[in-house]
């Protein structure tokens, strides 16, 4: 900022004009950033240090909200476990499945566009609609999967009504909706130079060796990207668990943001909800930094670095 002010005197007329115009053009974002990002971020941290219920004035209580969450809160660790289960299994599984599907689509086949569309469409259909469909499909009494099981004389599976199966069911739906990752992987696979595969063939590499020694190293930056984005978005998943199971049965699908929403807008525990929001913020920041830091060791950037 001071550099801008002291530099002002040394600027030519055009430079001054550009300085004003540039700031003017980005001012909508700058004002929006201050009003709708920076200020609420600071306010959120302040609320996390208070006892607040929307009605009475916030009362400063220091780090008590954080302390209570980590030690005495009955739900926090349940919610954290649920979310880590969902993210920890769902994201690696989703990345792996998406990568394998993309590899299949990248082989010499007809109808690639059709297959890609079929895989991609579930990821853009409104989550409310897909939640309704899965609610119906996985229903114990009227669902089609259990309908087939009954036809075969097998026992029905309580996908969404059993605390043991609810999380795996949601992970299954999460993997089903990874079409975006498939499209990103497919684009990356099409950028891998053919000459590398030809060279590997000359060296007598089989399909498996070509996959591990050419495809995977060439795609690590994109795998990393999908992995980071997967963690960040899965941590914030709300609509599917909220609409499908409402956090139940027995809090088994009470995920982080579902619980955060409930604390803020149902219980009106603004201090607690804000503390949870800041913990979420730090968790996401942590994962991003860790992945970017460790990436240098195993990511192939095409010899750029």
């Amino acid at each position: 900022m001071t550099a801008i002010v002291t530099g002002w005197r040394n600027m030519s007329k055009t430079e001054r004009r550009n300085q004003i115009l540039g700031l003017l053009f980005v001012s909508p974002w700058l004002i929006g950033f201050l009003l709708f990002a920076l200020f609420p971020l600071i306010a959120s941290f302040y609320y996390s240090l208070t006892n607040y219920d929307f009605i009475r004035e916030p009362r400063f209580i220091g780090l008590a909200n954080y302390q209570r969450l980590f030690t005495v809160d009955p739900d926090f660790w349940i919610v954290m476990y649920n979310t880590l289960y969902y993210v920890g299994i769902g994201v690696p599984l989703g990345v792996a499945v998406a990568f394998l599907i993309a590899n299949l689509l990248n082989s010499d086949i007809k109808g690639r566009t059709l297959f890609r569309s079929v895989i991609y469409i579930p990821s853009i259909v409104p989550a409310v609609c897909t939640a309704m469909v899965w609610l119906f499909i996985l229903n114990v009494q009227y669902g089609v999967i259990n309908g087939f099981l009954k036809t075969l004389g097998m026992a029905t599976i309580p996908f969404l009504s059993s605390p043991d199966l609810a999380k795996p069911s949601l992970i299954m739906i999460y993997v089903w909706a990874q079409g975006t990752a498939v499209v990103i992987f497919l684009a990356a696979l099409q950028d891998v130079p053919r000459s590398l595969y030809d060279a590997a063939l000359v060296d007598g590499a089989n399909l498996w060796q070509r996959f591990w020694n050419v495809t995977v190293p060439m795609c690590t930056p994109v795998i990393l990207f999908n992995f980071i984005m997967g963690i960040i978005t899965a941590f914030q998943d709300f609509t599917l668990p909220f609409v499908l199971t409402g956090g139940g049965p027995m809090k088994s699908t009470e995920f982080y943001v579902v619980n955060l929403y409930r604390n803020a807008f149902v219980q009106f525990s603004i201090g607690k909800a804000s503390a949870m929001a800041w913990i979420l913020f730090l968790i996401i920041l942590f994962f991003s930094v860790v992945l970017f830091r460790t990436s240098a060791r195993w990511v192939y950037y095409g010899g750029e670095k």
Binding site: A3, A264, F281
Partner: peptide, 30 residues
């Protein structure tokens, strides 16, 4: 447009993409 501080502000802009909107949800609601 070429102006001083442009690239620094652009980095701030990119960084905001990493900000989960649940963090600002409650103050914005208020």
């Amino acid at each position: 447009i070429r102006w001083r501080g442009r690239d620094a502000l652009f980095w701030v802009c990119i960084a905001t993409m990493m900000l989960p909107w649940q963090v600002t949800m409650v103050p914005l609601f208020i």
